[in-house]
Write a protein that binds this DNA or RNA. Structure first.
Lengths: 218, 218
DNA sequence: CTCATTCGAGAACACTGTTCGCGAACACCG
DNA sequence: CGGTGTTCGCGAACAGTGTTCTCGAATGAG
């Protein structure tokens, strides 16, 4: 039950045969593969093939596939371009969410990972540090601020997941049409009357309202 | 590209050899297995063994494993005991969230499913209908209300996932301790000073603040 | 040069979801 | 009663999967 995260397990250097690759290279290969063919395509064998090596070799850099997924998540978080904290906190948080959404648009597999296995690596810690810096002047307690961080990332991921491709929400739409036709759901029928479904009015507006509710408006 | 949800694919009865089991039985077996050994244990072979049959037989009731997962999600939604709509809308929504959390506590695999493949079956439609009924007197538009429904369920699932077992958040805690020790993250250090980590102050309070921000306070 | 130590990776194990095909079981019809 | 059309059950097989074992090869240190 060590439960030691990947990022602490460093390799001892200097002695023995040197590694031909780095953990960063493995992570990059996995990300490239996921970008191209989706998360399901990220198998140890496929990632290894991407690097021109054997599947078993990857276990020199990573303890398990799950570790590799954590590395991928944190590596993408390196893509944030965080401005100097300052100014109203809501604007600062919205900027973080905006960039997060952009990253998730670029890496369609990210939302699923963020939602199901939230991992805080070095870059994730930097991100959290930035959010806390933005909220430095805010009177809320530490618990509230950490909570806000979690809700921010979760909400961004969930919204990104729903707008990814036309498949996600639309599949339910087909069945809901059937439900409406059955006639037993008057409110649902009324809600779906104007426009078949419009669950994503405005990303930033939604996030802003949630964060305002969570932390107050001042 | 039919994308027909599971719930529409009904079996024609009367002709041919009658089925020995029902879709509901298969779903129940899968749920029992997931409750006992987790979602990863829900393989076609294991579910079939639970029913004393062969894996291939399940495909007479379900087109794929993913379909089975959708059936499981919706079946659990049958467990809601929804009161007659009436009274303040916030209390009505909070009651839904409270029950949702309870269902997710009882079925530890549910949050992951709700987050990654939100499926609206018959019982999910009933739930949505109820939420819309609770919000019937609210001035917000249909889009806003559907959005609130999505945020409600997502947030409940995310919070349930984080408090499931001591493994989820604590694993990151170990690494964050290391980050703090490095000394480069002053705000993070300060935030984690009082109590190692307290990201879940009060479920209902959190949800209430988010919903208030989303829909206003009146 | 020796040697402890590390890396690379083929082979194997125990699984997985899914498809094929065939025999068995039933409802209906003449 | 005997077809006959149709569905169901499911063993076998296929193409994968994550992971471990194992052993040879490569290296820096002494």
């Amino acid at each position: 039950m060590d439960a030691v995260p990947v990022w602490l397990r460093e390799r001892r250097t200097g002695v023995g045969r040197p590694a031909e690759r780095s953990r960063a290279e493995v992570t990059a290969a996995a990300i490239a593969l996921a970008d191209r063919e989706g998360l399901a395509a990220v198998s140890m064998r496929r990632v290894a093939a991407e690097l021109g090596t054997g599947a078993a070799s990857l276990y020199r850099y990573v303890d398990s596939r799950d570790d590799l997924l954590d590395l991928m998540t944190d590596e993408v978080a390196a893509g944030y371009r965080l401005p100097e904290p300052g100014g109203p906190w809501l604007a600062g948080l919205l900027e973080v969410c905006r960039q997060g959404r952009e990253l998730m648009r670029r890496h369609g597999w990210l939302p699923e990972l963020v939602l199901t296995r939230p991992a805080l690596g070095p870059h994730g810690a930097d991100l959290l540090e930035h959010v806390l810096a933005v909220l430095a002047g805010h009177p809320a307690g530490a618990g509230r601020k950490l909570e806000a961080f979690g809700v921010m990332t979760t909400l961004t991921a969930a919204l990104a997941l729903h707008e990814r491709g036309p498949g996600a929400g639309q599949r339910q739409g087909a069945y809901l049409g059937h439900v409406v036709a059955a006639g037993r759901h008057p409110h649902l029928t009324a809600a779906l009357a104007g426009g078949p479904l419009a669950p994503a009015p405005d990303f930033e507006d939604t996030v802003a309202r949630v964060l305002t509710g969570l932390l107050g408006s001042r």
